[in-house]
Design a protein around this nucleic acid. Structure first.
Lengths: 195, 195
DNA sequence: AGCATAAATAATAA
DNA sequence: TTATTATTTATGCT
C-alpha cells in the first residue's frame, strides 16, 4: 500500500489491460488513438505505456510480443494526430473494448472505488514543503472566471470558493497570489518593450 | 479589463512571444539567459514561463516542443548563473532576436525565420542528450522497494541511494519523478474505468 | 516495429 | 525563486 493505493491490485490491472489489448490485436498506439476520440486530450503511445505501470511486473513476466503487424505509415515518435476519418474507423473497436470491460465484474468494483484521484494526490508529505496541489480543469475554469472579474477576492469570497471547489482555503488564497504575480510579470515584460 | 490591464492584449502577447521563441529554436532557459545579459536581473526559465501567462491560452494551442538540445550540465532548478563567456556566446542571438522584434507587425513574414535558424544553431554548444542509463535488475529491485515504502524520498535518501547503487544522484531523482508519474497515470486510467 | 521508460522541457504550486 | 508536477521526446531492447 502506497499513498492509499494497493500496488498488487495495480499490477493485476496492468496485466489485465495488456492481455485484453493483445487479445484484440491492438497496439498501444491504436489504443491511444481510440482514447483520444472519447476522452479529451490525445494519449501518446508512451502515455499508454506509462499507464500500464508495466515496470512493476515486467520483470516477473516473460515479455510478450504482438504477432500481428498493423498499418503504421508514420514515425512512432511523432505526435499523434487523429483525423475524424481514422477516429471513425477505430470507434467501433473502442466501443467493443469498453463494452467487454464493463462485463468484467472484477474491475467494475475497482472503478466505483477509485473515482477520486485527489485522494491519492493530497496524502502525507513527511517533508517540509507541502505537496503540490493539482487543480482539476473545472476548478481552474471557475478560478479563472473569478480572477477575470476580480483579482483581489475578499476573505469571504476565498472561503466560498474553497468550500465550493473542495480545496483548502489557503490553497485558493495562494492561487490568487500566484495568478496576480503571473499577470504582473507579463505586464513588466510588456513595459520593457519586449515584443 | 482587470486592474486597468487588457487581458486580451496579454494573451496576444504571450502567443506572439512563444511563436517568436520557437521560430528561433530557443528554449525558455535560453531566452532567460539572453535577457540576463542586456536587462538587469537574471530571468529564470520559470520567470519566462510565468511571463507568458501561458495558462491563459495553452488550452487553445497545441503544445509545441523544441527539437534542439542545449547544454544542460546542471540542475535546471538551480538558479541560473550566467558567465561572461556564455553571455558573450548568446549575445548575437539576443540582438538578432530583438531586432526582429522591432518589426513586430509582420508575423507572417516571420516564416523566413526558419532560414535564419541555422545561424543560431552553432551559437550554443548544443550538447548531446544524456545517454539513457540502464539500471541493473538489482538496482531496480532496491529502488522499487524504496518506492513502495515512500514515493517521495528526501534529498538525503536520494543521495544515499545514489551512492549505494553507484548512480548519479540526478539519475535517481529523475527515476522517482518518473515513477510517481507512472503510478499516477495508472490511477488516472483506472478512475476512467478503462478495463 | 513496438514497447518500456530515461531524459528533456514546460508549467505552475508553494 | 524554488521545487515539483505535467507532457513530450527519443533511446535501448526485444
Amino acid at each position: 500500500m502506497v499513498d492509499g493505493i494497493d500496488l498488487d491490485e495495480i499490477k493485476e490491472f496492468a496485466k489485465a489491460f495488456k492481455l485484453r489489448r493483445l487479445s484484440l490485436g491492438l497496439t498501444q498506439t491504436q489504443v491511444g488513438q481510440a482514447l483520444s476520440v472519447t476522452e479529451g486530450p490525445a494519449y501518446s503511445q508512451s502515455a499508454i505505456c506509462s499507464a500500464l505501470a508495466a515496470q512493476m511486473y515486467a520483470a516477473q513476466l516473460s515479455s510478450q510480443q504482438q504477432n500481428m503487424y498493423v498499418e503504421n505509415g508514420k514515425n512512432k515518435f511523432e505526435k499523434l494526430d487523429i483525423t475524424p476519418k481514422s477516429a471513425q474507423k477505430i470507434k467501433p473497436v473502442l466501443e467493443r473494448w469498453m463494452k467487454e470491460a464493463e462485463e468484467s465484474s472484477h474491475w467494475n468494483r475497482f472503478k466505483s472505488g477509485q473515482n477520486h484521484l485527489t485522494d491519492y494526490i493530497g496524502v502525507e508529505p513527511s517533508k517540509k514543503r507541502k505537496r503540490r496541489t493539482s487543480f482539476t480543469p473545472q476548478a481552474l475554469e471557475l478560478l479563472n472566471a473569478h480572477f477575470e472579474r476580480n483579482t483581489h477576492p475578499s476573505g469571504t469570497e476565498i472561503t466560498g470558493l474553497a468550500h465550493q471547489l473542495g480545496y483548502e482555503r489557503e490553497v485558493i488564497r495562494i492561487w490568487f497570489c500566484n495568478k496576480r504575480q503571473a499577470l504582473k510579470n507579463t505586464v513588466r515584460m510588456m513595459s520593457k518593450g519586449m515584443v
